[in-house]
Design a protein around this nucleic acid. Structure first.
Lengths: 232, 232
DNA sequence: GGATGTGAAGTAGTTCACAGCC
DNA sequence: GGCTGTGAACTACTTCACATCC
């Protein structure tokens, strides 16, 4: 077990959602050879206030230096650890249309520690072919055990795909279809819906509020606390 | 200007982000021939409490009926209007890799009122071909004016693509690359980052918190208030 | 009777402002 | 001097609980 300071102070959901953003920024800074930064700069780039950055990062332990700022390398490592990237995640992707292929082939989608252990599609044309170095199989022949299942199927079969994932003992699902899934208690589902962002943009365009017209430098859409429905 | 009751009470960002979810549910209910529903059922499906549903919907005006619930059709129409779907949105997509094609070809991505007026890619193999009924053009020949620009290019060219969009007088950008963009004040950028959802799942898997283990029925990842960086 | 719509209460998240440390 | 880390103040959002209306 890699330990480190690991102040396991519970992080708030908004904070958790911002950590990947800070990390992206840190990685970009490292790529550019930047070794130091501060909360003001991070906030500008992430689209939040400096105070929020400090509050967020302080939750990971005291990783800044008063009077000078944050070491970018340390930032990157500590966020990585906080997010659990030091673990290994086996990922399966079901549905290899354009979206599934985009995810399988992207080097932005998979976090450090995540690896694709299975790609599935019912299309006989695809079965047997290789995508991103993994052979596509038929999901009806069974899905291999994994940590995270990603649903990229058409909406109509999203629910049965979820059932198959649960069957395969996968308890964490990332659902790219707009279908609201029914899953047993204990299985986590997160939804990614592109059109929601489009709709939010449309709302603000219509109302002239928020991101537009407010004299804002830039905005950043983040993901929010998963809210729970209590079993009725 | 189509008016309706249009209680233009300012909606909160969390509410705006949930409206598309309610609408998806309403559409699904209509498809199934359901004409009535209530806040309890909506909350279960959306993954929020009934009180939140009522509070959210009350912001659109009094569209429910005490004692009986909500008319699904009315719900659909009113949310549509509130989100500004009665307007027309011209959309251009830059970058037609798997992701760009997935968006162009998806009938979930484009909201009512949105239409693709331009598809762009620098790949000579793609230029001149048709995708989703639209001819692909070279972005270096200029980008046609539009309401919303969607960036699906590789990370490396995301910034210059954003510049080109701004140049084309497009003030609302949906950025699917993980690049934090620098844009002039007055231009709205929203970021969609698949890996953030994956990272949030990973965090909860590691810490055994949140969505997992809490005895929750299901969770729903929504998008959050765009937070502003004040120009420094 | 039953579900909405909403004041009031409670909770969570953000921002201020400054003490503490480099 | 300057920037972090954090109590305290503030703001926003959610949930409760019930009066209101069908």
């Amino acid at each position: 077990m890699s330990s480190a300071i690991n102040r396991n102070r519970q992080l708030s959901e908004p904070t958790i959602a911002r950590l990947p953003v800070y990390q992206r920024i840190a990685q970009e800074m490292l790529r550019r050879g930047l070794t130091k930064t501060d909360s003001k700069r991070l906030g500008e780039l992430a689209g939040v206030t400096a105070a929020t950055v400090r509050r967020d990062l302080s939750g990971l332990g005291p990783l800044g230096t008063r009077g000078s700022g944050y070491d970018v390398q340390t930032l990157e490592v500590q966020i990585d650890e906080a997010l659990g990237h030091n673990r290994l995640y086996d990922v399966v992707i079901i549905g290899l249309g354009n979206l599934g292929r985009a995810l399988a082939g992207s080097n932005n989608f998979l976090i450090r520690g995540a690896q694709i252990v299975g790609l599935y599609d019912v299309d006989p044309q695809l079965i047997g072919t290789e995508i991103a170095g993994v052979t596509v199989r038929d999901p009806r022949d069974g899905i291999s055990p994994a940590t995270i299942g990603v649903i990229c199927t058409p909406t109509e079969v999203a629910q049965e795909t979820a059932n198959a994932l649960v069957e395969a003992n996968i308890h964490a699902i990332l659902n790219f279809s707009p279908m609201v899934l029914e899953v047993p208690v204990g299985t986590a589902v997160r939804y990614v819906d592109f059109s929601i962002e489009l709709q939010i943009l449309a709302y603000h365009l219509t109302n002239g509020t928020g991101p537009l017209g407010g004299g804002l430098l830039r905005t950043l859409g983040l993901t929010t606390p998963p809210v729970a429905a209590r079993p009725s």
